[in-house]
């Protein structure tokens, strides 16, 4: 977290020194500050910051790709005249524990291929989802747990490996 503040400070310093106050320049300053901090990372105590940023960026790209696939698949299903869907309501045991983790996972599930989160059980252990292309129930469950949930939780749970 301290490194994040240092990064913002570096970005502001870059903006004030270059004298152009625009969002694009602020973003550029943030990137340069991040690079500078990354190069000198051995000077600080081991921190989760670089790992979190790297995994977050990877996750955003992974998710954008999934969102693209989701739209292609649903569009194909809508445009072809016959319904060859296999829809099911599936119970998905959760590894996410806090409210924030469950909310994030539910939102992301709603936006990815053929799945829609319906409700969380009152004890927060099971998420019920409606899946559109679920010939094999177990396969859908494994896919969400190993890809989406594991990657999402790893963003802030995984510890630095220095």
């Amino acid at each position: 977290m301290n490194l994040f503040l240092a990064n913002i400070l570096l970005a502001l310093l870059w903006v004030s020194l270059s004298g152009v106050f625009s969002p694009a320049n602020l973003l550029f300053g943030f990137l340069i500050g991040y690079l500078a901090l990354f190069v000198s990372r051995r000077a600080f105590a081991p921190s989760n910051y670089f790992g979190v940023v790297e995994r977050l960026v990877r996750f955003i790209f992974f998710f954008a790709y999934e969102l693209f696939l989701a739209n292609l698949r649903v569009a194909y299903e809508v445009l072809t005249p016959r319904h060859n869907m296999h829809s099911r309501v599936i119970a998905l045991p959760l590894r996410a524990r806090t409210d924030f983790e469950i909310t994030a996972l539910a939102i992301l599930i709603s936006l990815t291929p053929g799945t829609l989160s319906l409700d969380v059980s009152a004890d927060k252990r099971v998420l019920f989802i409606h899946a559109m292309f679920a010939e094999d129930e177990e396969e859908v469950r494994k896919d969400i747990q190993n890809n989406l949930e594991a990657r999402l939780l790893a963003i802030w749970r995984q510890q630095p490996s220095q």
Binding site: H83, M85, H86, S87, R88, V89, I90, A91, A106, I107, I109, S110, L111, L116, S117, L118, D119, F128, H130, A134, E135, E137
Partner: peptide, 28 residues
């Protein structure tokens, strides 16, 4: 959008809106 879909889906399931006859299983 996902929050609205979640609330509406939950309410509709609760109110007894029928599922499509091609639905294979219903864990809820």
């Amino acid at each position: 959008a996902p929050v609205a879909a979640h609330m509406l889906g939950r309410a509709a399931y609760f109110a007894g809106v029928p599922l499509w006859e091609g639905t294979l299983s219903d864990a809820l």
